[in-house]
Computed example of a mutant assay.
Amino acid sequence: MSVHNQMMKGLLDGAILGLISQGETYGYEILEKLKEKEFPEISDGSIYPVLLRLDKKGYVSTRMIKSDTGGPKRKYYSITKEGLEELKVFKEKWDLLNTGINNLMRSVDDVK
């Protein structure tokens, strides 16, 4: 797996937890919100394994709700107490990493 793919995998977990923390939502809606926020390179197939992993870790809870349009039931995701704790840790680590990377990249830009 490339460094880029590894980075995206880790960031996607935090991004999805962040979206779910804003209110109950379902997979396709999460995908659309990520695209609205200009999160790069997101496909349908990339978020469902993350949702499954977050569910198995106990960070989200799920429930099935009948579709308003008469289609199949949708699986809705809500963040759990454990998920909120994990999101807090993710945000703290992200802030530190983001500061460090930005400082490093500014120094790289100065070299040019």
Score class of each variant (00 low, 15 high):
1 M>V: 11
2 S>R: 14
3 V>G: 04
5 N>P: 01
6 Q>L: 08
6 Q>M: 11
6 Q>I: 02
6 Q>D: 09
7 M>K: 13
7 M>H: 05
8 M>L: 13
9 K>R: 14
9 K>D: 09
10 G>E: 13
10 G>W: 13
10 G>P: 10
10 G>Y: 10
12 L>C: 02
12 L>R: 15
13 D>L: 10
14 G>Q: 10
14 G>R: 08
14 G>L: 12
15 A>E: 14
15 A>W: 14
16 I>T: 07
17 L>T: 04
19 L>G: 01
20 I>W: 08
21 S>T: 00
21 S>W: 12
21 S>I: 00
23 G>E: 01
23 G>A: 08
24 E>T: 13
25 T>M: 03
25 T>I: 11
30 I>Q: 06
30 I>N: 08
30 I>G: 04
32 E>C: 10
33 K>D: 11
33 K>F: 08
34 L>V: 09
36 E>M: 06
36 E>F: 04
36 E>H: 00
39 F>C: 06
40 P>G: 12
40 P>C: 07
41 E>N: 14
41 E>D: 09
42 I>A: 15
43 S>D: 07
45 G>E: 03
46 S>K: 15
46 S>E: 13
47 I>C: 03
47 I>V: 14
48 Y>Q: 11
49 P>C: 05
49 P>T: 11
53 R>T: 03
54 L>F: 08
54 L>E: 10
55 D>Y: 15
56 K>E: 03
58 G>T: 02
59 Y>A: 01
60 V>W: 06
61 S>D: 06
62 T>F: 03
63 R>H: 03
64 M>D: 07
64 M>K: 12
64 M>Y: 02
64 M>A: 04
65 I>R: 14
65 I>H: 02
66 K>Q: 09
66 K>I: 00
67 S>W: 01
69 T>K: 12
70 G>P: 02
71 G>R: 11
72 P>F: 03
73 K>Y: 07
74 R>C: 01
75 K>D: 00
76 Y>D: 09
77 Y>N: 03
78 S>G: 05
80 T>V: 07
81 K>Y: 07
82 E>I: 02
83 G>Y: 02
83 G>S: 04
84 L>G: 10
85 E>I: 02
85 E>K: 08
85 E>D: 13
86 E>I: 07
86 E>P: 02
88 K>H: 11
90 F>Y: 15
91 K>F: 06
91 K>I: 10
92 E>W: 07
93 K>Q: 09
95 D>Y: 11
96 L>C: 08
96 L>Y: 06
97 L>C: 11
98 N>G: 02
98 N>F: 14
99 T>V: 07
100 G>H: 00
100 G>I: 08
101 I>C: 04
101 I>E: 04
102 N>C: 04
103 N>D: 13
103 N>S: 13
103 N>W: 00
104 L>F: 15
106 R>Q: 14
107 S>R: 09
108 V>P: 01
109 D>F: 10
112 K>Y: 07
112 K>V: 11
